[in-house]
Nucleic acid binder design. Structure first.
Lengths: 170, 170
DNA sequence: CAAGTAGTTCAAAAAAACTTGAACAAACTC
DNA sequence: GAGTTTGTTCAAGTTTTTTTGAACTACTTG
């Protein structure tokens, strides 16, 4: 009744070769973004699935633990990269991928980039205060100059994000 | 003759509090970019130094190993984020930071982003070939649609990079 | 050219990040 | 309402990444 038992040492044995290739593609993709491998696996499989998948589907097909799947799905939901599929007469939850680049980029910016930009701005303020205590006028001018530069970097970063989202979104 | 000996368990003890704060700022910064902590430490210290620093300066002030400093400097050079300072009558090499945002972003794109985009495009081609073997016409149409979407994402990515660089550069 | 200095390399150690799985809570079913 | 099923949590285990440091190369200098 069961499918052929998995070859030991090999994960994602239940996948077709297309699925495996797409999963790999996204595993690489999320790695660039500094996100864990499992996110790429989950998103990738959803992306190339013709129907929504449940947590158990992911556990079985990807050969990952329930814990990984659960946490991965949560992160992907937070990022707006997956959503629950509607209307399948079933108790369990099925997921489908968000495939709108603008939305994906937006979620990434909101969750991963903005928080760092914001904390950077806070840090910069206290750096500025520390620098203001400098007594040597030559040093002080140099520090002020560098700090202004950092402030301009942060400002540009903030300006670029909405642009990025606009450019990438359709 | 020596400075007060370092407090055990604490690194970067040789730094002023301004230096420490700036180093922290960059440590956070490089982490977002998925680069190792030591790169942030090294770049941060160079950034807030009034004069170029040698490898030994970095080892002493940051409390990192010679190996880390050497490898970190190499990566930073590759990224175009530091360069050798000219004209100090001395055998050893002194480094100063590149402080032009355009150049920094350009180096990051060239070294860290482009290679992944390129390998992604290659992968996508072979995915496309695999999908073309699909017999079921409904599946085939779905796969084709998804792959086209990926292709459009990659294309947009490629288009955005130069724009980004332009927008951020001055 | 011997002794010293600057810097690199890379195997092994340490640290950080990710995944697992067992215990748990919540919701459903009969 | 006892027993399933679905999904979450988190401490412990595993894997991956980063750092260290000792051995080495290549200069330099007296």
């Amino acid at each position: 009744m069961d499918l052929p038992s998995p070859q030991p040492g090999t994960r994602t044995v239940g996948l077709t070769s297309l699925q495996r290739q797409v999963v790999d593609f996204f595993v690489d993709g999320v790695r660039v973004l500094g996100l864990p491998r499992s996110l790429g696996e989950i998103y990738g499989l959803l992306f190339i699935s013709t129907a929504p998948l449940s947590l158990d589907d992911l556990v079985r097909d990807l050969g990952i633990s329930k814990g990984s799947a659960s946490q991965g799905l949560r992160t992907l939901r937070t990022l707006g990269a997956v959503r629950e599929a509607q209307g399948n007469g079933d108790r369990r939850t099925y997921y489908e991928p968000a495939v709108d680049l603008k939305k994906l980029v937006g979620g990434f910016i909101r969750e991963q980039v903005r928080p760092h930009l914001d904390s950077g701005k806070t840090k910069l303020q206290s750096i500025s205060e520390t620098a203001s205590l400098t007594t040597d006028p030559v040093d002080k001018e140099f520090f002020t100059d560098r700090i202004e530069r950092l402030e301009s970097w942060m400002k540009r970063g903030s300006q670029v994000l909405p642009m990025l989202q606009r450019i990438l979104g359709q």
